[in-house]
Write a protein that binds this DNA or RNA. Structure first.
Length: 535
DNA sequence: CTAGGGTTAG
């Protein structure tokens, strides 16, 4: 056996570190005769990646010589492990910094959610490398600062695929769905190949808009790039087919993919649950157990909602109990919220309230919201008032609880309270979510909101079609029923908003554009409606 | 030897 030389030591050390076999790497490192900066830095960053920061720091302090890379590796180690102050201390005293050092520090702030510090550092940077800009955009996107992300995006002369996916993700996360689509189109138009993050974001957009045709094209593009071999991308694909209502296709993609991870199982379970297919969801849950895959917290959310939507109180209780007793998952607020929903829907409103009172975690807005929904369903004004009070403490600027409460008063005959509530809602500027509808036509999404039809470039012909529709409906004896519109607008306004109701606009547009005989699929705040063409 | 980006949920 020839004696090991310096090169073979270095190579072996690198191999152990890459494989995560740190203790073996450490042993080899100790017996290495001349440890140079490169070997020391490699060992140091190995410890950092394993979260063994103390050992990394010992090594760092022990180094006879350090270069910019060793300093940066230590800073990055602190950054990634949430020790921002220590990272910053080193950053301040290091003899010279390069782009990577700046970016490592920046990423620490972003990952810790300290967007102001990140922004300050970003502005202080002598140059703005692509990696730093991309990270900054992601940070802005996570904090809802789409404009800031866009400003960075537009100022970059050099963009890579990560730049594009960061912008698309920022749009997608903040529900700028149309912008996400057009940015994705722009990206391909400029010859930038899609990457995993951008494809996943765009599938999420397709899911939210329920635009099946677009989703199918993304699927085809995925096949061309072999992205259909990737668990994460395929989970997003399955969710897309589910949210677009194509459960068969979702199931086919799901069955073909091996090996499935827990997220993929969850996608299918929650997908069936959302469509009210309780048996199917429980069937997949059962298959999952047989396959030896351990459920996680989201799996339980999926099966419990499946039980809830299909009234399986007994099964739901059993599953919840087995989660508490047999599984490694501790039930959190989200699981209690499923149970409150399960009991509440089944009419066991008092029992649901008892559960809230006795549970080991703090009740959040979602839990009280679930209880409130149950009260509405079963006309329980007393508990509804209690839930509304709690909700308003937790989310004071939301109109939801007031609106629900006014509905409950109306349905229980408490007209005066109902009217008081309505006046209260209109007297304050509360967040009322406005309805919108859209239609997929000619590879584009055409979005309509109730008021501003004039914003559409083809509003003239749409208005004509709406009038024609009105006429046809009148002839067939249909009169507008405003009962499902929010009760906080006056009659005249109500009729007006109904006539130019977003869904009607979208239908009118579809009638104008979609070829005869083809179905017109109008999507409306996550609900899909099919309109068969007959005009 | 040091920097960025990903899936499932109520």
């Amino acid at each position: 056996m020839p004696e090991r030389n310096h090169v073979s030591y270095t190579v072996m050390l690198g191999g152990f570190i890459d494989a995560g076999r740190l203790d073996e790497a450490g042993k080899l490192f100790d017996e290495m005769p001349d440890k140079d900066v490169v070997a020391r830095t490699a060992m140091l960053s190995g410890y950092c990646q394993a979260g063994r920061i103390a050992e990394a720091r010992l090594l760092f302090d022990d180094m006879p010589k350090r270069n910019v890379v060793s300093w940066t590796a230590m800073i990055s180690g602190y950054s990634q492990n949430g020790k921002l102050n220590l990272a910053r201390k080193l950053f301040e005293v290091m003899p010279d910094r390069n782009e990577v050092s700046w970016t490592a520090m920046l990423v620490g702030y972003i990952q810790a959610g300290h967007i102001e510090d990140a922004e300050q550092l970003f502005n202080a940077m002598p140059e703005h490398p692509v990696a730093a800009c991309n990270a900054m955009m992601v940070g802005f996107g996570q904090r809802g600062m789409v404009d800031a992300a866009k400003a960075v995006f537009e100022r970059m002369q050099e963009k890579d695929d990560g730049t594009w996916s960061a912008m698309i993700k920022a749009y997608e996360q903040n529900e700028f769905l149309i912008e996400a689509l057009s940015t994705f189109r722009d990206m391909s138009w400029r010859g930038v190949r899609p990457n995993y993050p951008s494809v996943i974001s765009i599938l999420t957009v397709c899911s939210a808009l329920a635009i099946l045709n677009y989703g199918r094209e993304v699927h085809a593009a995925m096949l061309r790039c072999s992205f259909d071999m990737d668990v994460s991308a395929v989970s997003a694909l399955i969710t897309m087919y589910i949210k677009c209502g194509n459960l068969d296709k979702a199931n086919r993609v799901f069955n073909m993919f091996e090996p499935k991870d827990v997220v993929m199982w969850n996608s299918m379970i929650t997908g069936y649950a959302q469509h009210g297919l309780g048996e199917e969801a429980l069937g997949v849950f059962n298959d999952m157990t047989i396959a030896g895959m351990a459920p996680d917290g989201i799996t339980y959310i999926g099966v419990l909602t499946a039980c809830s939507y299909t009234g399986k109180v007994k099964v739901g209780r059993e599953i919840f109990n087995s989660m508490c007793k047999d599984s490694a998952i501790r039930p959190g607020a989200e699981h209690y919220s499923c149970m409150v929903d399960l009991l509440g829907r089944a009419g066991l409103v008092d029992e649901a309230l008892d559960l809230i009172k006795n549970m080991p975690v703090e009740a959040d807005a979602i839990i009280w919201g679930a209880l409130m929904g149950a009260c509405r369903m079963h006309k329980n004004a007393e508990i509804a008032e209690l839930a509304a009070k709690k909700l308003l403490e937790l989310e004071p600027e939301s109109a939801g609880p007031y609106v629900l409460l006014s509905h409950i008063y109306t349905s229980t005959g408490r007209w005066e309270d109902a009217s008081k509530m309505r006046k209260f809602i209109s007297s304050r500027n509360l967040n009322k979510s406005t309805g919108c509808s859209w239609i997929e036509y000619d590879k584009r999404v055409h979005l309509f909101t109730s008021g501003d039809i004039l914003a559409h470039p083809e509003h003239a012909i749409i208005l004509k079609m709406l009038e024609k529709l009105d006429g046809l409906l009148m002839e067939s004896g249909y009169s507008a029923d405003g009962s499902f519109v929010l009760h906080d607008i006056d009659e005249e306004q109500k009729l007006h908003s109904l006539r130019y109701h977003s869904e009607r606009q979208a239908v009118a547009y579809g009638l104008l554009k979609v070829p005869e005989g083809m179905p017109i699929r109008v999507m409306k705040n996550l609900r899909v409606g099919n309109h068969t063409q007959r005009c």
